[in-house]
C-alpha cells in the first residue's frame, strides 16, 4: 500500500520533471527559431531568398549581406546609433536614479503628482513628440545632431528607468540603510556602500532598456536626423522600396548587436540578481 503510493509519487515527480524540461526547451525554441529563420534568409543568396520552397539550413552564401553592406552610409549610421544609444543610457540613469531614491525613501508633498507625471509620460504616444520638438531643435541648433536625438530618446527611456528601478528599490528594506547609518555612514555613504550595490541589477536593467529603446527607435530618429541617420532610420528609409533579401539582411544586422549587447551584460546582470536573492 505505502509502496504504491511512493511509486505513484515518484512517477508524478518524474513526469512533472519531463513536463518542466520540455516546456523550458519549447519556450527556448519559441524565441530562437524565428531568429534562426531570419538568419537562414540572411545567409542565403538573393535568388534563394526570393524562391520557393525554402530550405531550413542556410547555404552560407554572403550574397545578401554583401549587397547590403554595399549600401553607402551603413557604417556611419551604425556609429550614430551606438553614439546616441550610449548617451541616452548615461543621461537616463544620471537623471533617473536620484528621483527613484527620493520616491522610495521620502514622504514629501507632491510625491503622487510626481509619480503621475512619470506615468503620464509613458501614457503618451511618444513618437509624435518628435514633431513639435523638431521645430524647437532647429531653433536651438540641435537638429540633426546625435545629442539632440539622445535628448528625445532619454525622454522615452527615463520613465522606464524610473519605473523599473523604483519597483526594485522599494524591495530593499529600509533597515539596511538604517543599520548603515548607525554604523557610521552618512546618507550618501550608506547609499553608495549599501543601496547602490543592491540596486545595481535594477540600474543595469534600466541601462539596458535605455540603450535598447534608443537603438530600436525609428520614428523620432527619422524625423530629427537627416545627414546623421541612425541605423533604424537609415534602414527604414531604404527598406520601403527594397527587395526581400535586403529587408532580411537589414533585419539581421539590427538583431545581431542586440544579441551581443544582451549577452555582454548577462553575467553581470545575473550575478547581481543572485545577490539580490536574499
Amino acid at each position: 500500500m505505502t509502496d504504491t503510493v511512493l511509486v505513484d509519487a515518484a512517477n508524478t515527480r518524474k513526469w512533472g520533471r519531463y513536463l518542466y524540461i520540455s516546456s523550458v526547451v519549447l519556450l527556448c525554441a519559441w524565441v530562437l527559431v524565428p531568429i534562426y529563420f531570419l538568419m537562414v534568409n540572411t545567409l542565403s543568396s538573393p535568388e534563394t531568398v526570393n524562391s520557393f520552397p525554402k530550405t531550413l539550413v542556410p547555404e552560407f552564401d554572403l550574397g545578401s549581406l554583401t549587397f547590403f553592406a554595399g549600401f553607402a552610409g551603413m557604417l556611419t549610421a551604425l556609429k550614430n546609433s551606438v553614439l546616441v544609444a550610449g548617451m541616452t543610457m548615461v543621461m537616463s540613469i544620471l537623471i533617473g536614479a536620484p528621483a527613484v531614491y527620493a520616491l522610495s525613501r521620502f514622504e514629501f508633498r507632491g510625491k503622487s503628482t510626481f509619480r503621475l507625471l512619470i506615468l503620464l509620460t509613458r501614457a503618451f504616444p511618444l513618437p509624435l513628440l518628435a514633431l513639435p520638438l523638431a521645430v524647437m531643435f532647429i531653433r536651438t541648433g540641435l537638429d540633426d545632431t546625435a545629442f539632440g536625438l539622445a535628448l528625445v530618446h532619454t525622454t522615452l527611456a527615463v520613465p522606464f528607468a524610473v519605473l523599473i528601478t523604483f519597483s526594485l528599490f522599494s524591495g530593499i528594506p529600509i533597515e539596511l540603510e538604517e543599520a548603515a547609518w548607525t554604523l557610521g555612514c552618512t546618507r550618501l555613504t550608506a547609499f553608495t556602500m549599501v543601496v547602490l550595490p543592491l540596486i545595481m541589477p535594477g540600474i543595469t536593467a534600466s541601462a539596458i532598456f535605455a540603450f535598447v529603446i534608443s537603438w530600436n527607435e525609428v520614428f523620432a530618429a527619422a524625423v530629427l536626423t537627416i545627414e546623421n541617420r541612425t541605423l533604424t532610420a537609415f534602414l527604414l528609409q531604404n527598406l520601403d522600396t527594397s527587395p526581400l533579401h535586403l529587408k532580411f539582411a537589414g533585419g539581421f544586422i539590427l538583431v545581431v548587436p542586440a544579441l551581443i549587447f544582451i549577452f555582454a551584460v548577462r553575467k553581470y546582470l545575473f550575478a547581481m540578481w543572485g545577490i539580490a536573492n536574499r
Partner: peptide, 23 residues
C-alpha cells in the same frame, strides 16, 4: 535559459516585423 528568453528584449519592432515577415 534566462539569456535566451531575454533575447527579444534587444530586438526592435522593425527587426521583429521582418523576422515574422520571413515566416
Amino acid at each position: 535559459v534566462l539569456y535566451i528568453w531575454t533575447i527579444p528584449l534587444g530586438i526592435s519592432d522593425l527587426a521583429a516585423e521582418l523576422i515574422w515577415l520571413a515566416i
